[in-house]
Design a binder for these strands. Structure first.
Lengths: 248, 248
DNA sequence: GACCCGCTTTGACCCAGATCAAGAATGGCA
DNA sequence: TGCCATTCTTGATCTGGGTCAAAGCGGGTC
């Protein structure tokens, strides 16, 4: 199940590759050891479902590498993505037994998990873990509300630009691989997944991406490899304040 | 400022009219006394702005009576409502200095507030207040994600039915004034506010409400007074599972 | 190297909801 | 009792994005 040598279970939580946003960011040594005892890694292949909506969820955890999505589906098949989980994002909710959404691995995925009951016990003993979770949940709430503006009021072109901005920003903060102000990244989503996130059809997504390419806002190599020559321009296209911007 | 005799500041937090969802639901007597010491009431008139997005927010609190809304606005004036605050809902976020959204009193509004710093101090000493807040924030996050499905994938008619369902449900849980299975309530929002919540125009809202009335899904007296003869039917129109339904 | 399969692009057409434009209720106030 | 300002309804028309349909990729694999 776990064959990546960089992810030895002997590493302490403090060494965790995602510790910069992790729940344990402020823990003492002994608390870190307790966290390490209930920690384990899980791997999923691209396309695998991590949990189905309504199923019992026996763990919480963070994404270490890869991308997962949270999705809601209506009886007639219409689907809406309600969350995009990138490395360092938290999954699952203490105090809740069942998943509220489908969680799907969009790419190959590694998660750092904590068994639910022991994690909750630890949370009850160490207040700053609860605080950290509250902070993270408030961040997610802000991101969700920001996305409500995208879904409710933005045009298709603005929606695409908004999504690209978020991915570019998150990607940049992870890899810092920008050359002379340019941002370069690979789209981790199919056109259909982007459509489900944006409340559009995949055809409209494709057309708008083509339009942004024609207008020089982005440059494409193949279908997935994106270069953003001017981030300011992209933010303008997204309809955001150039300075402030998305809080995702 | 405070002339309603039913809201004497001498009442304890345990007597708070909104205590059923309040942060203090599990507090001990001495903690309740501490909460009472930093508690006060605020009144706003319909139309007044409680805080502007970006402004310093020096309190947190709950809605006691009336309705408030959370709103985001783009530079060109497009607005999206991102939260509807009904009695018992919590406002503000511990650990955050500035408001992220405009908070507006839609009707006359009474709030039960706690000064922010003392509240945070108390929260740091009493873990179950932090837990309660985490629970409430997770509920809000679920509601926001549910709303993303409404905004991204539902038709205008379904959107209206969804909004009416939520208001009917919340109203019913407050007043329990249903006669022989019917639900009766007053719409607390203008057509324009509904449009801002649903990502529609006010004309479309008006037309769809008329359509639902013609089809017998709802009955209207005047512009605001609504009767729902069959809640199941309304939920069907909203595109929800008849049994499960919105978790707002 | 030919074939296949999932993903993507592009075109032609259509329709739900936006926009523009009158009016009609409602209700507060003199 | 009538006036005025909101708020709401309804009609006519327009359009952005959906729907349906048909090619174009790559990139595995036999």
């Amino acid at each position: 199940m776990l064959n990546d040598p960089s992810l030895s279970v002997t590493q302490t939580c403090g060494d965790c590759p995602i510790r910069h946003r992790a729940v344990c960011a402020r823990c003492e040594t002994d608390e870190l050891e307790q966290l390490d005892q209930i920690k384990y890694y899980r791997k999923y292949e691209a396309g695998q479902t991590v949990v189905w909506s309504g199923d019992r969820m026996e763990f919480v955890g963070s994404v270490v590498s890869g991308i997962a999505t949270l999705t809601q589906t209506m009886e007639d098949g219409r689907t809406q993505m309600v969350g995009l989980l990138l490395p360092s994002d938290f999954v699952g909710r203490p105090g809740r037994g069942n998943a509220a959404y489908d969680v799907v691995a969009t790419t190959d995925l590694v998660m750092c998990c904590f068994r639910k009951q022991p994690f909750e016990d630890l949370m009850n003993k160490t207040p700053h873990i609860a605080h950290r979770l509250l902070e993270m949940t408030l961040d997610e709430l802000d991101a969700a509300r920001e996305w409500m503006l995208v879904l409710g009021r933005k045009t298709a072109r603005e929606k695409i630009a908004s999504l690209l901005s978020i991915i570019a920003r998150r990607d940049a903060s992870l890899h810092l691989r920008s050359a002379e102000g340019q941002l370069v990244f690979d789209l981790p989503l199919t056109r259909e997944a982007m459509a489900d996130y944006l409340g559009l059809t995949l055809e409209t997504v494709s057309r708008q991406i083509s339009a942004l390419r024609k207008d020089g806002v982005i440059h494409l190599e193949g279908k997935r490899h994106v270069t953003v020559p001017d981030m300011e321009r992209l933010l303008e296209e997204a309809g955001d304040d150039a300075d402030g911007g998305m809080l995702a």
